[in-house]
Amino acid sequence: MLDWQHHLPFFRILSQSCGMNMYDVVIIGGGPAGLGAAVTLSRARRDVLVIDAGEPRNGRASRANSYLGREGIAPRELLTIGRGEVEQYGGDVRDGTVVSVKRLGPTALRVGLADGSTVDARRVLLATGVVDELPDIPGLRERWGRDVLHCAYCHAWEVRDKVVGVIASGAASLHQAQLWRQWTDRVVFFVHESLELKTSDRAELAARGIAVLEGQVSGIEVTGDALGGIRVGDTTIAVQVALVFPVSNARTELLGQLGLLPEEKHMDDQVIGATLTDVDMFGATGVPGVWAAGNVRGHRAQIIDAAAQGVQTGAMINIDLVNEEVAAAVAAHPFTPEREREVAKHVLVKR
C-alpha cells in the first residue's frame, strides 16, 4: 500500500513523532511585513506562528497612508485586520517578546520568549523592524507621530500649508526641507548644532523661500494638545509641525545572536540608520534557515512596501521548504518502476 505521509511536511511529522511541536515557519514581528508573509505561507498550507511584541514603528500615528485600498486607516486597525487574515487560513498569532534564537540543526531553530516558553521552527523570518532614535530635545518623543514627523509621503498631505519647522541633524535635513516645501510654502530651517551651511545651501533655501534660523534648539512648546512652537534660546518660533531626521536602527539583540550585523547607512556623510545587508533580493540571509523582510532590511520602506516584501519573502520561504521536502521524499522513497506504477494507480482516475 502506498505511504502517503511523504506528501506531508517531512520535518513536521518527525517533530510530532518526538513529542515536539515544530512549526514550518516562526515569524518574529507582526507588522505589515510579518503579517504579509504569514498570509502567504498560511495560504500555502504551512504551519505558521507570528510572535509580536506589540510595538509597531508607526504606533503613535493616527493614519496609515499610501496603502492602496486602506488609505487613512489607523495603523493598529490595519494590523488587527492582518491578524484576522492570517488566522482565517489557519495561521497562529501570539503576543510575546522573543529574546533568543538558537540553532537545533542545519536549518531547524528554537525561538525563546521572555515568558520562558520556546517554539521550534524549520525556518525563522525576522520582521523585527527598526527603532527610530530622535534628537535629544525635550518634548519631541511625546509628540512623535502626531506633529513631530519625518516622512513626507506618510504625513505631509495631512499638514499641508501649515508652518513647518525642520530641526536639522545633518546635511540630510536639507533634502528634507526642500522635499516638504512641496506641501507648504511656510518652512523654517533650524540649523541647530548639526552642520555649517555652505553658501550654496543658503542659496537653495532662500531661492525656495525657506527661512533659516541659527542657534541651538532647546525644546518645543505645546498649547493644549497641539505643537505651538520651537524654542531657540529664549525665543520661541511659532510652528505647527516639527520635522526631524531620525536615525533608524534595526533591533540588534536577536541579530547579534545569529551572527547578523546591521550596516550603517549614510546620506551625505550623515548616518541615517543601520539595517541588514547580508540579505539577498528575496529575503534569505547568510544564516541558513533565517530570512528577513521589512524595515529590518531597509528603513525607508513604507507600509505597503514592507507588506509586499513580506508576501514575496513568504513565497520564497515556501519554495525553499518545498525543495527540502522533495529531497527528503526522494531519500525516503528511492525510485523504482514499481513505485511509479503504484503512484499512478492511486492518483490517476480513469473515466
Rank of each mutant, 00 (worst) to 15 (best):
T80H: 12
V163L: 02
D278S: 14
P337H: 11
V326E: 14
A172N: 11
D225E: 15
L321A: 04
M20Q: 14
T223H: 12
R103Q: 15
P135W: 01
V271C: 06
V50N: 04
I230F: 00
P246C: 01
R181Y: 05
V164D: 05
A238L: 05
H6R: 11
L134E: 04
R94V: 09
A332N: 10
A108M: 07
Q302S: 07
T277Q: 13
A64G: 12
A308K: 02
G59Y: 09
G54E: 07
G229V: 01
G139R: 02
N21K: 15
N318H: 15
L276M: 10
L41C: 08
Q16I: 03
R143E: 06
D269M: 12
V188W: 00
G286R: 15
S15D: 05
C18M: 10
L126W: 10
L243V: 00
D269Q: 14
A206E: 15
T236W: 00
V25P: 00
W4E: 13
E55R: 15
E87T: 03
N295M: 06
Q5H: 14
A171W: 07
S100G: 14
G116C: 01
R63L: 08
M20P: 00
V330G: 10
D185T: 10
D161F: 09
L321N: 02
H346W: 08
S100L: 08
P246A: 05
N21M: 13
P9Q: 04
G286M: 11
R45E: 09
V244P: 01
A207N: 15
A64I: 01
A206G: 14
E221S: 07
E263I: 13
Q16P: 03
G29Y: 01
L49K: 04
H346A: 10
I137F: 00
Y23W: 13
